[in-house]
Design a protein around this nucleic acid. Sequence first.
RNA 1: GGCGCGGUAGCCAAGUGGUAAGGCAGAGGUCUGCAAAACCUUUAUUCACCGGUUCGACUCCGGUCCGCGCCUCCA
Length: 466
Amino acid sequence: MALRFYNTLTQELEEFQPQDGKTVRMYTCGPTVYSYVHIGNFRTFSFQDILRRTLKARGFTLDHVMNITDVEDKIIRNAMAAGQTIQEYTAQYTQAFKDDSATLRLQAPERLAFATEHIPEMVNAIERLAAGHHTYANEGSTYFRISTFPEYGKLSHTNFSGNIAGARVEVDEYDKADARDFVLWKAQKPGEPAWQTSLGEGRPGWHIECSVMAMKYLGETIDIHTGGVDLVFPHHENEIAQSEAITGKRFVRYWLHAEHLMVEGQKMSKSLGNFYTLRDIIEKGYSPESIRYLLVSAHYRKQLNFTFDGLKGAAASLERLRNFELRLKNDRLAEGVNPEMEARTAAASAAFNKGLDDDLNTSDALAAIYEYVRDANTALDAGQFLAGNTAGAHALLAEFDAIFDVLKPTIQSGALTDAEIDAQVAERNKAKKAKDFKRADAIRNELLERGVVLEDTKDGVRWKRK
RNA sequence: GGCGCGGUAGCCAAGUGGUAAGGCAGAGGUCUGCAAAACCUUUAUUCACCGGUUCGACUCCGGUCCGCGCCUCCA
């Protein structure tokens, strides 16, 4: 089956093919770096990572740009309160975002694009919009006039035709002609950082950065654009209006949106205060891999309720896969190849990929892996799984882990090295042989305290990191 | 009110017009010097509710109830 994605624009599953058949030009909405990113945000970023990896696995080359919004109201407010420049203030959270992303094994996009490094391009874009009569100025700010873009609402499938200017929505502190108009350039307010430009002294509105940076690096029509569902309106709708008003061309071919991570039945958000950062959860003793597993185990277009019980379940599920991998390495198997098992492996691989191809149905893909693991374990117990079958099994796990990337444990700093652990295991084996079980148990307990679990199997001792 | 999504076992979660994947937890068993481990087996006569279409619906259609999101900054 061909790779298919649900396109928010058409509300249909569509077969995916990049414009040039080879390179996927993808833009993903990244964080606003005014504080630590929470794991609700990371659900979306994790989804983007699964998307990236799946595209790569299908042989496409990626050109992926993610923006970092490093100038915005909350940043300015917090930086001023901290007595820092916005550059100083955002640098720490940008770094934290990069660190956290690495912890969650999110592949870095080909390019991170910072809003503050694209001010001239944004000004230029706004001037082009002005030349096309899509803007108006008021008290030093510049606005996009939505009435000049008849297709406005096509992404969020909202009809604004009956809307009377200012009648339904309170106009905010900036004066707009129509409540749906949005600001492109904000006039400087006292004390705020600003850029001196042909539009006057001020700073860019939020939406324009994505249009400008996406088109600068990826071209006027890009293949994929993603973000959380809360960005569909107004952010992405506005991006379309700006971009298409400038170029007259379709801005994005496939729009993909990730559903929210929920907590106790409500959206995880900073304003509700019901959020956890990655650091919060890791401090409670959960591994990055189990968090990653939890975030990507449900389909991205379904709301996912975050609970610690769920996280424990994710960790346990993951253990099952790791144990199988360990078993492949440790069990002593008879020589030969069981062709039935080889066929089973191929079927599992096909089912796994079929799941991913179906709009990144990770639940379905995972099920294929678990069914295989159960069958393979049964075959191992029955002696039907032969030495020649391990290569295929490892290849399947590698195929799985190229997307999910959860099998290898994160090794904490200060942890024992493999060699140190092996030495202790050998020591314990000696004690066991001498029937010195007290000593053997003591070593096992010491290792356990240092995060290493020993398991005795009929084919010898195996160990794993907790 | 408008737009969108969803209601499947104790919990999480796929799926299909032809009789319910998978994971966690629970129960039983196997292995083991012991074992907290590991592995196997098992767990929904039923898919929110009510009508309709059909040989047959959880899956299609209509309606009802409930939950969530967006409509303002937001992943």
